[in-house]
């Protein structure tokens, strides 16, 4: 693996869309869950008695973690140059190619 490939591979990992979604949703999840944990009665009453911030926060946290886990379990490989004839056989998830 030469320098160029290594750089591309690093860029591909950094830039995996699953990491972007996972990252944003984990941050959203943590913030909204915290807010939900301390919601006063006004907020709860407005939402018809549902602790919506808490639940939505936890749900977003779970979604975010799922995406990060997915990426961790089947990491992106560096995209190959266009003329590759498909020898990236081990790409089980079939979802990892990222540019």
């Amino acid at each position: 693996m030469n320098d160029e490939e290594e750089r591309r591979s690093a860029a591909a990992r950094m830039f995996d869309v699953r990491r972007v979604i996972g990252g944003l949703f984990v941050v959203y999840g943590v913030i909204v869950t915290l807010v939900g944990a301390f919601d006063g009665s006004t907020a709860i009453d407005k939402a018809q008695g549902v602790r919506i911030n808490l639940w939505a926060g936890l749900a977003m946290l779970a979604v975010g973690l799922l995406f990060l886990m997915w990426q961790w379990l089947s990491p992106a490989e560096a995209p190959e140059p266009a003329e590759s004839d498909g020898d990236d056989v081990e790409n089980e998830g079939g979802d990892a190619s990222v540019r």
Partner: peptide, 27 residues
């Protein structure tokens, strides 16, 4: 941030206009 990160992956016009024809189906 995604915009700036994507810039690093652009080498050719096909990268710019068609994402280098490289994306998986779920995306």
């Amino acid at each position: 941030g995604v915009g700036f990160a994507a810039r690093r992956a652009i080498r050719t016009s096909v990268d710019f206009f068609l994402s280098g024809r490289s994306l998986p189906a779920w995306v």
